[in-house]
Design a protein around this nucleic acid. Structure first.
Lengths: 284, 284
DNA sequence: AAGCATTTTTTGTCCTAGACAAAAGAAATT
DNA sequence: AATTTCTTTTGTCTAGGACAAAAAATGCTT
């Protein structure tokens, strides 16, 4: 049995939210210890994690939190298939997904090496690596991967790409593009793919990684002398938060520095500050 | 001006803690917006981050939270020097630290490559990489590195070691040792160093990375057929939490699987479950 | 002194329920 | 089709007290 703090840590759902879901949707239904504090069973935590994954895929709390176990399973189960069939099915890609979901890392590794050698880094990133990470995310949301499997896969994919980048070699000279995500944003794969494409086209980069406070980005951009700052926003980031952050950034950054933004969070965005451009991986 | 939630995110100090520090120590002293909510200035956040770093180094809240800006700066400023002089000074190491703190990544990179080529991976990890990461942590605590500089350095060190590992080549066959940290533990460098040493001695590993729930570790260990589970605990982890987690893990893991633990958090630990051993990097 | 057990101090987490604004969806308008 | 307006949904923040876990300090034993 687990305290609300552990549940927050394990599920990424805040205490406040857990308490208010209980009030509004009747789930979760923790018991109480002798101190009167909520204690959650492992089953409820598991269900919360399943809910969390569905929310990350864009479902709304009111639609999924009150669902019974069965309905939840069914929803998650159909999710990946639906998304995959929408995109159309590429047999080579299907094979990679099978390797990924079966957890056969060495086989996945050599399959990736083959594709990389055949297609070159840019095409590999765009046509193979990006869809593969997307599928991993969906498999995860659908509950077909255990947490540890997702951990291993993501780590491995990151490592694979970093090694591939090191083989291309880091371009010499001062960095042109600074990459990073703002606080609260943990998705590093988008940045990494952008970095790979930039390096492959001979442009030096400075990757700050995830979770970088805004004023640190400003300082880093000024000190390093880059001409472009590239930020990635995943779907979790809300539109207004993105707009506010971008306005502040545009204001505080020297005029000469361009801002590129990318990721699932920017798709529905309009009315950007003048120095901000939406970039897709393809356009790098 | 920032809401309490942003401060929690940027400093890693929980809302509850921020409020209770205000009551107990008279710091921070946020103003209020028209809704009556706390709003924190950038200066206060910066001071909170400085406090946070000192706490991570083992100071207690009562000693540092009430301190004035000046006293805080002085304390942080002397910290790294004291720790460094305690360890004794190696000129080669000093040069690396200078490169690291000056942010000259290419120069640091080639310096590391030289040492690696001369000493080999194991000795490089033990005698160069480990002390260097320790120094980076101390410089960070002392406030001599900006957040972004610490980000860049850590990312770079990780990448360097991963590429070095890939050059040695991953040993074939089933993994023998599973590596990971439990939820709440974000320090990945210890795991990475252990992995490098294991790989260099021909043992295949499975690195789950940070923040892995206990039952996922159990499942992963059973499925992958490892003979050893290695966990890392940084100084932030409390002794009792470690003991409880280890007892649960020892109980749920098959008897044949050994448990290794390492990291700053395990130094003062006693009375361990029978299957648990404290391992230092040197003894791998 | 070093190891262990006990007491005292310090410290963080959790509780309540209501208020409210931000986000997203739906509907209406240009 | 794009923008504006309205409505519903959703998460964040407030307070101060209670309390236990953690760490330090003390005392005791070897």
């Amino acid at each position: 049995m687990f305290a609300i703090g552990s549940v927050e840590r394990d599920t990424g759902i805040s205490r406040d939210t857990l308490r208010i879901w209980e009030r509004r949707y009747g789930f979760p239904t923790p018991e109480r210890n002798d101190k009167g504090e909520r204690v959650y069973s492992a089953e409820q935590i598991q269900r919360l994690q399943r809910i969390r994954r569905l929310l990350d895929q864009g479902f709304r709390p009111g639609k999924v939190v009150p669902l019974e176990d069965e309905a939840l399973n069914k929803l998650a189960d159909t999710l990946h298939d639906v998304l995959l069939s929408q995109r159309g099915i590429d047999p080579a890609h299907t094979r990679l997904i099978d390797l990924a979901s079966s957890g056969d890392i060495p086989a996945l590794n050599s399959a990736l090496e083959q594709v990389l050698a055949r297609e070159g880094l840019s095409s590999f990133v765009l046509d193979t690596f990006a869809p593969l990470t997307k599928s991993v995310g969906e498999l995860w949301a659908a509950g077909r991967l255990q947490i540890f499997e997702e951990h291993i896969l993501t780590r491995h994919l990151v490592r694979f790409l970093e090694v591939a980048m090191s083989r291309v070699g880091y371009p010499p000279g001062n960095p042109e593009v600074l990459l990073g995500t703002l606080p609260g944003e943990q998705h590093a794969l988008g940045l990494l793919m952008a970095e790979a494409l930039l390096i492959n086209s001979g442009r030096a980069t400075l990757n700050l990684g995830t979770d970088v406070p805004l004023d640190e980005i400003v300082t880093a951009a000024e000190r390093s002398g880059v001409s472009t700052v590239a930020l990635s926003f995943s779907g979790c980031y809300t539109r207004n938060a993105i707009r506010d952050d971008l306005e502040e950034l545009a204001e505080r950054l020297p005029r000469a520095i361009r801002i590129w933004i990318g990721g699932d969070g920017v798709r529905r965005l309009r009315r950007l500050p003048p120095s901000v451009e939406i970039m897709s991986l393809e356009s790098i």
